[in-house]
Amino acid sequence: MSTTPDTAPRAARTLDVPPPGVWHLDPLHSSIGFVARHLGFVRVHGRFTDAEGTLTVADPVEETTARVRIAAATVDTGVPARDRHLRSPEFLDTARHPVMEFRGHGVRRTEEGWAMDGDLTVAGVTRALTLDGRFLGEDVYPFTGGRRLGFTGRAAVDRGDFGVSGLPPLPGARIFVGALVDITLDISMIDHDIQPFNEQLLGRPQAL
């Protein structure tokens, strides 16, 4: 018998699919990010800092559904002037469309993990979207004593499909911002609603 300490996460070894039930997005420990191209190939990163959502894991797991709502005005690229422009009617138009939403209506296995098929609504326009990702495992959520799940996800969208076709107010702007945007997700989900706990910890109300 080996005496080497076993440091691999228990959940990652023992779970192939997430347990059935309703799981709540943990916004404090999740990242909803995006990447756009500058001058054709340089990657510029951003994120949305406020979201809420649920994942309803079914049995069979293929019937799993999800609903995630994102406060569009919480877009953050690290440059306040650029963020204000992204909130404007030329891009996300957050005054008229304050919430972006993803509704997933089923999952399927892939060679790399899982895919969830659904619909994404941005700036009032809805298009089909498939998220490719991996289930990372299940473990104790230490802050409340509940259980948590971990996921990663990714997708690519053409912002023009959603009418988000604005450009910087600069000469030759079309070469500055690409049409394709990568979505990158690192998601923590909890077996109970922890939003009141997060609001207390963050000291501010939820934006949604």
Rank of each mutant, 00 (worst) to 15 (best):
M1T: 14
M1W: 08
P5N: 06
P5M: 07
A8T: 14
R10D: 13
T14Q: 13
V17S: 05
P18A: 10
V22N: 08
H24D: 02
D26M: 01
P27Y: 07
P27N: 11
H29S: 10
G33E: 04
F41Q: 10
V44T: 09
V44H: 05
H45A: 14
G46E: 10
R47Y: 07
F48W: 15
A51M: 08
G53W: 00
L55N: 01
T56I: 07
V57E: 00
D59C: 07
D59M: 04
P60F: 05
V61S: 05
A66I: 01
A72P: 03
A73N: 10
V75T: 14
R84M: 10
E90H: 11
P98S: 07
E101P: 05
F102S: 02
G104K: 04
H105P: 00
V107A: 08
E112D: 14
A115L: 07
D117W: 02
G118L: 02
V122L: 15
V122A: 09
G124L: 09
L136Y: 02
L136I: 03
E138W: 09
V140Q: 09
Y141P: 00
G146R: 01
G146F: 01
T152D: 12
G153N: 01
A155I: 03
A155E: 00
V157R: 04
S165R: 14
L167A: 12
P169C: 04
G172L: 11
V177P: 03
L185T: 08
I190F: 03
Q195N: 13
Q200A: 15
Q206K: 10
Q206H: 14
Q206W: 11
L208N: 06
